[in-house]
């Protein structure tokens, strides 16, 4: 099962994502931002980091990279895409997901273990969780405050498209404590916290993030 991870100039967590895919039992495939070639992967992860130095807006320049042309077309036809942190920002800038990520309300860069609830287990990335399951995965960003219009917020809630929600104190001013969302079809998911950094006890707060990667592997076999 080939899962791709895109490296943009300034990506940081691409190797962590590749490692998570491997640990979950998949075949990790490195993809490059400057090429349109998806190398026959069956799903793709846009990793965290600071692509293009976060210049202009986070994700704004990456969104126009050659690989994103292929990903946007594929995603519109049901191809599974997971955006983590900067990857989430790129998905919003690409309009594959609604809303935008803005500066944390207290202006601090937050780096912490964060408890979140998995509120939508109908996506291929979260199917292995139980509905409402609370997991602890790291959060590390300066611009993670999810913002959108009132109509979009109402739509996301009504259609149960909130994938992850912060539990306890809202860390960054995100509307409705939203930590992750999906598109209408559910194949495109963006999350601010980092599941790929919680895949084993030794290097993270636990291994509860690994289920994102084992879920997609299981879902793709089922197709």
């Amino acid at each position: 099962m080939r899962i791709g991870v895109v490296t943009f100039p300034g990506s940081l967590d691409d190797h962590s994502a590749l490692r998570a895919i491997e640990l979950a039992g998949g075949e990790p495939v490195s993809l490059f931002h400057g090429s349109t070639d998806l190398k026959e992967v069956q799903a793709v992860v846009l990793p965290g980091g600071f692509s293009y130095g976060d210049y202009l807006r986070c994700g704004a320049i990456s969104r126009f990279s050659p690989i994103m042309e292929s990903i946007i077309i594929a995603a519109e036809h049901g191809f599974p895409v997971l955006g983590i942190c900067n990857g989430f920002q790129i998905l919003c800038e690409s309009h594959l997901l609604p809303g935008a990520l803005t500066r944390n309300s207290d202006l601090h860069f937050i780096c912490d273990d964060q408890k979140v609830a998995v509120e939508n287990i109908k996506t291929p990335w979260t199917a292995g969780y139980t509905q409402g399951q609370e997991i602890v995965i790291p959060i590390k960003n300066g611009e993670g405050s999810f913002q959108c219009s009132d109509e979009t917020l109402a739509e996301l809630e009504a259609e149960s498209r909130v994938v992850l929600r912060y539990v306890g104190k809202n860390p960054n001013g995100s509307r409705n404590s939203i930590a992750g969302i999906s598109n209408k079809q559910g194949n495109v998911v963006g999350v601010m916290p980092h599941p790929e950094q919680a895949i084993e006890e030794l290097t993270g707060p636990g291994d509860e993030g690994l289920i994102f990667f084992s879920s997609i592997l299981k879902e793709m076999v089922g197709r």
Partner: peptide
């Protein structure tokens, strides 16, 4: 400019 309804923590600071 950020839309008026969008929180601007930099401006607030």
């Amino acid at each position: 400019m950020l839309k008026p309804e969008i929180l601007d923590p930099q401006g607030q600071a």
